[in-house]
Nucleic acid binder design. Structure first.
Length: 304
DNA sequence: AACCCGTCCAACCGCGTCAGC
DNA sequence: GGCTGACGCGGTTGGACGGGT
C-alpha cells in the first residue's frame, strides 16, 4: 500500500527519524510530554516532545513500555491460564486478549505465546505424535485436547439453566442434544460443526464466518468481535483509569449471577426459532459472557 | 576466553480501517 | 465517492543476552 503511514515512510522525513531502541532520554521526553499534555495526535506528540521519531514509534513505545498502568514482570500462572483460554476462543487476536489482561500489552502476550506457550504445545505434540493435531491449550500441563476443551464449553452452555456456570448468549451445539450436522464424520469436530453455523447479525453485529479448515493452535478464525463489551477505554484519547478498568473486568468476569438468574435459556439459545439444521442461525453470540465462567479456570482463586 | 546457538522481546513493517476533507 | 492522514493490529525481524561447548 503506497502512501500510507506517511509519518513514518516519507523518505524525506524518514532519513531524519531515529529508529531502533529507545534511549532513556527519549523515554523521559515522551513520558514527560504524555504526563503533561496527555494523548493526542501521535505525529504531533513526536514533534512537540522533541523526539526524532515517527508518531507510530512513539505510540508503540508508550503503549508497550511507558504507560504507567503497565504490569511488569513474568506472567502469573493465572494470567497464563487466561491467555490460553482466551486464545482458544479468540485465536491470534492479541489486542482483544490483552484487553482482558489489565496491565499487559498485546505485544507482550504475543511474544509470550510465541515463545513459551507454543513451545510447550510443540513439546506436548512430540510426546504423542499419534494424537491428532487439533489441540488447544489448557488443562493441567497447559495442553488440553480440543475435544475435551469443547466439551467443557458445551457443558457450560447446557448447564446454564441450573447453575451459575454460564449465561452464555450463544448457540453452541453438542451432538448429545441433537445433531444438526449429520454429515460430520467426527461428531466432536467442532471446527466443522461451527463452520456450518450461519452467522447473522446478533447484538453486536459484524459477526464472522468460522473457517472450518483452520481450527487449531496455529489457526485463527473469525469469531464475533468483542469490542462491544470490551474493557478497553472506548475513548482512546483519555487516559485509562486502572482501578475502574480492573473493577470492570472483575465485574464482567465474576459478578454475573444476577444476569444468569434472569436469563431465559431458550431465548438465549434460540431453540424456539431456527435451532436446527444446516441453516442454523445464531441469535446471539456473546463470547464475553462465555468467558465469565470462572469454574472453567483451573485456578479458582483467580484474581488480578 | 572465544565462539556458537537458541531464546526472548522491543521495535519495525505492512496492511486494514476509519474519519475528515 | 475518492483521497489522505492517522490509528491500530498482527506478523516479522533483529539485537541483546545467556547457556553450552
Amino acid at each position: 500500500m503506497v502512501g500510507k503511514d506517511n509519518n513514518c515512510n516519507n523518505n524525506n522525513i524518514k532519513s531524519k527519524l531515529r529508529k531502533g531502541l529507545w534511549s532513556p532520554e527519549e523515554d523521559e521526553k515522551l513520558l514527560r510530554y504524555m504526563i503533561s499534555k496527555g494523548q493526542g495526535c501521535w505525529s504531533d506528540i513526536a514533534r512537540n516532545a522533541g523526539l526524532h521519531r515517527c508518531g507510530k514509534s512513539c505510540r508503540l513505545r508508550w503503549i508497550n513500555y511507558l504507560r504507567p498502568d503497565l504490569k511488569r514482570g513474568a506472567f502469573s500462572p493465572q494470567e497464563e491460564h487466561l491467555i490460553i483460554h482466551l486464545h482458544s476462543i479468540l485465536g491470534n487476536r492479541w489486542s482483544q486478549i490483552a484487553a482482558r489482561l489489565p496491565g499487559r500489552t498485546d505485544n507482550e502476550i504475543k511474544n509470550f505465546w510465541n515463545s513459551t506457550v507454543k513451545k510447550r504445545l510443540k513439546t506436548n505434540n512430540n510426546i504423542d505424535s499419534s494424537e491428532p493435531r487439533d489441540h488447544v491449550l489448557g488443562g493441567e500441563n497447559g495442553i488440553m485436547p480440543i475435544n475435551e476443551h469443547l466439551n467443557e464449553l458445551m457443558t457450560m452452555c447446557m448447564d446454564s439453566s441450573s447453575s451459575t456456570s454460564s449465561s452464555m448468549h450463544a448457540m453452541v451445539l453438542t451432538h448429545d442434544h441433537f445433531d444438526p450436522f449429520p454429515m460430520l464424520t467426527n461428531p466432536y469436530d467442532m471446527s466443522s460443526c461451527l463452520a456450518k453455523v450461519e452467522m447473522v447479525d446478533g447484538l453486536h453485529g459484524d459477526y464472522g464466518i468460522l473457517e472450518s479448515n483452520k481450527m487449531g493452535l496455529e489457526s485463527d478464525f473469525s469469531f464475533p468481535s468483542l469490542e462491544s463489551r470490551s474493557i478497553e477505554n472506548e475513548n482512546n484519547s483519555a487516559p485509562i483509569d486502572v482501578k475502574s478498568h480492573n473493577n470492570h473486568f472483575n465485574n464482567i468476569c465474576f459478578n454475573n449471577t444476577e444476569q444468569i438468574q434472569n436469563s431465559n435459556v431458550e431465548e438465549l439459545f434460540g431453540f424456539g426459532n431456527n435451532g436446527q439444521g444446516e441453516n442454523l442461525r445464531m441469535r446471539e453470540w456473546d463470547l464475553e459472557v462465555l468467558m465469565q465462567d470462572i469454574s472453567y479456570f483451573p485456578s479458582s482463586d483467580f484474581q488480578f
